[in-house]
């Protein structure tokens, strides 16, 4: 089908719909004054990202994204909001205190990500996917696990050590001081 002279495929429609939801939800996260609603919108954003992964032929990443980011991290954020019950009732100011600094940080992050993405070698090139729809080859679970345990084993282990340190640290902070101990 042609709209305004462009050929529109169903794949592109799905891409526009999903990325639209993702971007709008992401805007909501930073603009909605109610912090609980912002947290829920964050969940929606992450589901949208999972949808993009599905479109990019990476269903495993999509499932893991939902399991970890939506199922665990969003839940944790909501619980944290509950526990700090002062935050729940009062409006939560989302003002940007230093716009120049914020824009700079966002710009640097964007540039960094953009350069990395543009210079990476892709099994399914995103540009091809958007133009022609997904190729038939899935990025398999096996390929991911081989990558994690062979070339990337050091960063992978480093991340887990970091997580372990965070866990131990939070236990130490949360532990009540016993008198005489």
């Amino acid at each position: 089908m042609h709209i305004f002279g462009f050929e529109i495929t169903g794949y592109q429609l799905a891409f526009v719909a999903i990325s639209g939801v993702t971007v709008i939800a992401a805007l909501g996260v930073v603009l909605v004054p109610n912090i609980l609603r912002a947290a829920l919108l964050l969940g929606l954003t992450l589901i949208g990202v999972a949808g993009l992964f599905v479109l990019m032929n990476a269903p495993f990443l999509a499932a893991v994204q939902i399991m970890i980011y939506v199922g665990a991290i969003t839940t944790m954020i909501i619980l944290a909001v509950f526990l700090s019950n002062q935050v729940m009732r009062i409006g939560f100011s989302q003002a940007i205190y230093n716009p120049i600094l914020a824009a700079g940080a966002a710009g640097i992050l964007f540039a960094f990500l953009f350069i990395t993405v543009a210079n990476s070698v892709w099994i399914n090139d995103p540009r091809n996917i958007i133009a022609a729809g997904p190729a038939n080859s899935d990025v398999g679970v096996e390929a991911i696990s081989r990558a994690l345990l062979q070339p990337y084993v050091f960063p992978f282990e480093l991340a887990s050590v970091l997580l372990l340190a965070v866990l131990v640290g939070s236990v130490v902070i949360a532990k009540e001081d016993k008198p005489g101990a």
């Binding site: 829920l40 969940g43 589901i47 269903p59 495993f60 499932a63 893991v64 939902i66 399991m67 939506v70 199922g71 665990a72 969003t74 839940t75 909501i78 899935d138 679970v141």
Partner: peptide, 18 residues
Amino acid sequence: SLNIGAIYFSAISSIGVI
């Protein structure tokens, strides 16, 4: 039929708690 069915199951069922 998904080739990641088992993970799909645990991922989707983890949303309900929210």
